[in-house]
């Protein structure tokens, strides 16, 4: 009887260890995904000064927008590398703001024919599209990793060992801007065109 008890105990301990190991693996995957986002965001940050340098020559009237982008870039750069779950929300918000303003700048650039046909600007637009695609892909990777971690720590018995594995409060999902989630108003776009 006592042998059976030992066997059951061993199975339970082994099970809990495997669960612990699985949660730690998933937590590390989230950290990897977060680092992937940082890699892509750094590329965006590196691209911005180049685009601004090209745009300055043609877009003097958009000085306010360009200054906004510069300020937001400086602010967002400070949160690159942040892994603390409590600060991740603020980091995403800063990047969302920067992304929105930078996207606006690139859209406004479309209405300057000389800038639009400028060789370096064409190259910058291509890089911008690639960087934004990679940022979106990295965010999807992050959300997938966070989803798996949350499932693991919130479903019993994962909740028992989550604290021990340092995953008691999992990081938030990345959520797109409210503007980006809003349905596209095709009528206004067509009217503008």
């Amino acid at each position: 009887m006592s042998l059976l008890l030992w066997v059951v105990l061993a199975v339970v301990v082994l099970g809990l260890y495997l669960l612990y190991a699985s949660i730690v693996t998933k937590k590390n995957k989230v950290a990897e995904a977060l680092a992937s986002i940082d890699v892509q965001l750094t590329q965006r940050h590196d691209l911005i000064p180049n685009v601004l340098a090209i745009a300055k020559r043609f877009m003097e009237h958009e000085r306010g927008l360009m200054d906004d982008v510069t300020a937001l870039r400086t602010k967002a750069s400070q949160s690159v590398g942040v892994q603390d779950p409590a600060q991740i929300g603020a980091k995403f918000a800063a990047e969302n703001q920067l992304g929105a303003q930078f996207g606006k700048l690139m859209a406004v650039a479309e209405s300057y024919p000389a800038l639009k046909s400028d060789g370096p600007m064409i190259e910058a637009q291509k890089t911008y599209a690639e960087v934004e695609t990679n940022i979106a892909a990295a965010r999807r990777f992050y959300n997938s990793a966070v989803g798996e971690l949350r499932n693991a720590v919130q479903i019993f018995p994962g909740s028992l060992v989550a604290g021990l594995a340092g995953a008691g409060s999992p990081p938030p999902f990345f959520e797109a801007n409210a503007d980006d989630r809003a349905p596209v108003d095709a009528a206004s776009l067509l009217a503008a065109g």
Binding site: E32, A33, S36, V39, Q40, N134, A137
Partner: peptide, 10 residues
């Protein structure tokens, strides 16, 4: 590469 795979599979 998880990011590259998702950058392709939009």
């Amino acid at each position: 590469d998880q990011v590259a795979a998702r950058a392709l599979l939009t």
